[in-house]
Design a protein around this nucleic acid. Structure first.
Length: 353
DNA sequence: AACCCGGGGTG
DNA sequence: CACCCAGGGTT
């Protein structure tokens, strides 16, 4: 009985308070899919402009499927978690060219697609096809943990199963999409991580955490990850014709698929250009015997969720560069990490000194 | 199960 | 500064 009241109250709250968002005006699986991928681990305020750009540039899945990967990555630039963009493009091509542009019409079929896991498959299936599968995202963990007093860690195997199971009991089978969006909206707007609006909450009288004064302790999450510190030395070649060298990151780690200047990573910060001329560094200079100077004395600190990167940019002036070099004015056409985008924007306006 | 993958917002 | 965000893939 408590469960039924929970679901009913939540949906009532949602219908009265939901935000007007562009993906809420459609049941087109392509648009729902696009929005769900973009919003993975991403706030709506951050993802919304990207959604508008993608739907404008790629109105149909065929437009997305036919685009070069570099174009997709360029539009994705700044949104982070770039594997999402690569998987998005891969799945677009699969659906467009192997499935006639039609998405699978149920949870199990959607789950097979690259980049679509339990959450996204549930979201699309419930919103587009009225399949009663419950989403469990960060909002759902928080709302359920507080309201029902669940202390299992949300990032343990046991916790993940328990929350999914409870969510499946709570879903309204007659309007699964509305229920799923209701609990997420409620978690985002009302039952927020900090300063939740308990005083005006319609579920207050039956909420475990409110009654026990444990709102601040739920949900439970196990430890945090360690942070790695890295030192990047970017070699910014600059010929007399204002050309430079750029390469694509193909390795497994961060920023796969994006472009960057030739990079030398070191264990410690590098202070003098003498070091650039020795050992490892020499092979990157292509025997051009360039004149070297340090662009930024103080390293630029770029913070990722699991790494702190300290970057120095070394300007290597040479007479000429190899044919595969590019003009610096075309730097802005390539998808690059935000760290480099910021440098490039300043550098291009600085007369290159 | 543990680890990796971005960038920005919040208190 | 710590924590979080409409999670998914890999090992």
């Amino acid at each position: 009985m408590k469960n039924k009241n929970f679901t009913k109250t939540l949906i009532k709250w949602y219908l009265a308070n939901k935000r007007d968002l562009p993906w809420r005006n459609t049941n087109d699986p392509y648009r729902i899919w696009l929005s769900e991928i973009m919003l993975q681990q991403t706030r709506i305020a951050q993802g919304l402009p990207y959604y508008l750009t993608f739907t404008r540039e790629y109105p149909t899945i065929f437009d997305l499927a036919n685009a070069p990967q570099d174009d997709v990555l360029k539009l994705w630039q700044g949104l982070g978690y770039y594997s999402r963009a690569r998987n998005l493009h891969s799945t677009a091509k699969k659906v467009a060219f192997e499935m006639n542009g039609v998405f699978p019409n149920d949870y199990q079929g959607l789950l097979k697609l690259k980049g679509i896991g339990d959450y996204t498959a549930s979201a699309i299936a419930s919103i587009c096809y009225d399949e009663p599968v419950a989403v469990v995202d960060g909002n759902v963990y928080r709302v359920l943990a507080r309201y029902f007093g669940i202390v299992l860690p949300i990032n343990s195997g046991e916790g993940i199963k328990a929350f999914k199971s409870l969510a499946m009991e709570l879903i309204d089978p007659k309007q699964p999409g509305t229920y799923n969006q209701a609990i997420m909206e409620f978690g985002a707007m009302h039952c927020s991580p900090k300063l939740p609006l308990c005083h005006e909450c319609t579920l207050r009288t039956s909420c475990f955490a409110y009654a026990e004064n444990k709102v601040g302790e739920l949900p439970v999450k196990l430890k945090k990850q360690k942070i790695t510190i890295r030192h990047f030395n970017y070699l910014v070649f600059l010929s007399e014709e204002n050309r430079t060298l750029l390469q694509q990151r193909t390795s497994k780690g961060i920023w796969q698929g994006l472009y960057e200047f030739p990079l030398i990573e070191t264990e410690q910060e590098v202070f003098t250009e003498d070091l650039i001329l020795t050992e490892d560094f020499q092979k990157h200079t292509h025997h051009l015997d360039p004149e070297i100077r340090l662009y930024n004395n103080k390293p630029i600190k770029h913070i990722l969720s699991h790494q702190h990167i300290y970057a120095k940019f070394w300007i290597l002036s040479t007479k000429r560069l190899i044919k595969s070099s590019i003009h610096i004015n075309s730097l802005t056409e390539y998808p690059v990490p935000v760290l480099l985008e910021k440098f490039i924007n300043v550098f291009l306006q600085s007369d290159y000194d």
